[in-house]
Amino acid sequence: MKDINLLHIIISLLGIMGIVSLNAVLVVWLERKTAGRMQFRHGPMEVGFHGILQTLADGIKLVSKQLVAPNHADTALFILAPVVSLVPIFVAMMPIPFSSTMLAHETDTGLLLVIALGLLNTLGILLAGWGSDNKYGLLGGTRAVGQILAYKIPLLLTVLTIVIMAGSFSLREIALAQHGIWYAFIQPIAFLVYIVCIVLETNRSPFDMAEAESELVAGFHTEYSGMAFSMFFLAEYSYMFVASALATVMFLGGWQGPFLPAPIWFVLKVYFFLFLMIWFRWTFPRVRIDQMLMLGWKVLLPISLINFLITAVVLAL
């Protein structure tokens, strides 16, 4: 409580806002570009150099559009949902270490903070689905909730495996513990399980049940337009960033690397994961919800549990 420094907090929040918006612009561009190239197209080419400002143009268009709430929608929930979805991001970004000193808020429980707040995204999706009085929206929200139950336990077990290896919940300590060798090499199974889990967590294809375009129009954000829609968009890409940053810290040694400055290494590693997720999306077809539940309960859970037990036993010896 003694270390409240107003200036530090304001600068960090401004920095986080910058990261959230810049990351969304870049990742959406990267996604469209990758999608294009993987389908032998060019992707966006018109606005800016190779279309890099396309997302900005789309964003300006979205902001200028009207938000229309359906007649029987629960207006309070309808407006609240995108806020619930986006706001936790600003807190979840605080303990992420871009270098050993470059982080908004040093805390012993950084990993828990990020994971706990990552869960609130689902709440936003559920409220959006429920509030918009639309059967597709409701189905999308329900699916998101079913999904969270299936992947959260393997995710937590994987995280716990890393925590007992590093002996700390602090993201900085975990990254420093991998000074010699990355945990991705010591814990390959945990690494794979975590990658599957972050795809599940961020509701991305092949697990984008909540917004399955071919079945549910747009799922939970069917009724959203304008600024509210772009807030969901921002939230989705920011959660991708946070999940990838967590993966970087836990498995790829965080900011550590030769030659380049620490924050650049960190961002490069994060974007490696982001690219991986984009690559998944444009390669794999969407799974059915029962297949996803099977994967969560019958594959990821036993594997992560056994991996956790083995790690614990090995560490105890």
């Binding site: 294009g36 190239r37 993987m38 032998f40 690559w279 390669t283």
Partner: peptide, 10 residues
């Protein structure tokens, strides 16, 4: 898909 990404666009 990664091969497609680095091949010529159609």
């Amino acid at each position: 898909t990664i091969k497609a990404m680095f091949s010529r666009t159609h």
